[in-house]
Design a protein around this nucleic acid. Structure first.
Lengths: 158, 158
DNA sequence: TCAAAGTAGTTGCATTTGCAACGAAAAGGA
DNA sequence: TCCTTTTCGTTGCAAATGCAACTACTTTGA
């Protein structure tokens, strides 16, 4: 019966996890929109590129890092290129391939977005937790992530 | 300098939060799809209705509980009604209003989905955490949620 | 009582997503 | 070498989402 209670706690915590995620993300999106800034999905791309050597990265690599499908990254890059925050560059080594290269405007935009975004993270997330709780969450997420990554592509029914 | 470290930890934890969310959700969606079951979004509606008195609920109430916009709930209900998992019922007291009412098939489907879904929650989430960690997460999410809910609709720049 | 304001649910439209298929190019293997 | 398989990025198409407008109805309050 301890098991039952633990299970109920787990399910409740899972639901809180989902709820917290939507609520916080929606709030941050509202904050960004109110500042006339692009949505959160753009930030991931800009930041990943900024960290990459020469501010450039192959599209499939980018897709992998920001957890988007290939087709999805193609169109997201389309929009960012349209907004001149990055540009495409052909790959000399692999004639199928392309790089996304961050522009100056892209770099500046990343910083503008971070001003708002970091405020949101601080206000809605970080300030609500003490150091010990933060450490526990960090560790917990790493454990969960490891478990999901170990899951084989088709591992049902067992 | 402790402040710096704490901040870095916070940002890393935030990123882990985002990554964990997509990875686990995508995995559970794959599990559901592999069992020929509907997506996770359907589950929330079915479960909320099942808990409600007489297995019925006003649409705007439902929207609020499953965290969807009104227009969004309309179309989601459309799909569920199309699949005969629920049906609409006019509200006698308020002639603008409508109820969503769970059907037998809807009840059965909720249970089928739960068989897979609960397995996912257990495997990818609950089993990765001990009781203490689970308690900390539960508490942490409640704190965060409270903070977001307290945030006024337009509260930028301060 | 009656006009103004608010609320419930739906709809149109533009944007975004997900899936499968495609052409082009590279990699692997007999 | 030559044929098969894999990978890269894109595209078409259907489905889902978000926003604003709309109809119908209720509530408010002068």
């Amino acid at each position: 019966m301890t098991a039952l209670h633990l299970n109920e706690l787990s399910n409740q915590t899972w639901k809180l996890f989902l709820t917290t995620h939507v609520m916080v993300i929606e709030q941050i999106e509202r904050d960004l929109a109110a500042a006339n800034l692009p949505p959160l999905s753009w930030y991931g791309v800009l930041w990943t590129l900024e960290k990459a050597p020469d501010h450039e990265m192959r599209l499939h690599e980018l897709a992998e890092q920001v957890l988007l499908s290939r087709s999805n990254i193609t169109r997201l890059i389309d929009r960012l290129e349209e907004a001149e925050l990055l540009c495409r560059k052909r790959c000399p080594r692999d004639r199928r391939g392309a790089y996304a290269v961050l522009t100056e405007a892209g770099l500046a935009m990343r910083q503008q977005m971070w001003a708002i975004y970091s405020q949101g993270i601080a206000r809605y997330f970080a300030k609500q937790l003490n150091a010990e709780e933060m450490n526990t969450l960090n560790q917990a997420f790493q454990q969960i992530l490891a478990a999901v990554k170990e899951t084989p592509v088709a591992a049902l029914g067992e």
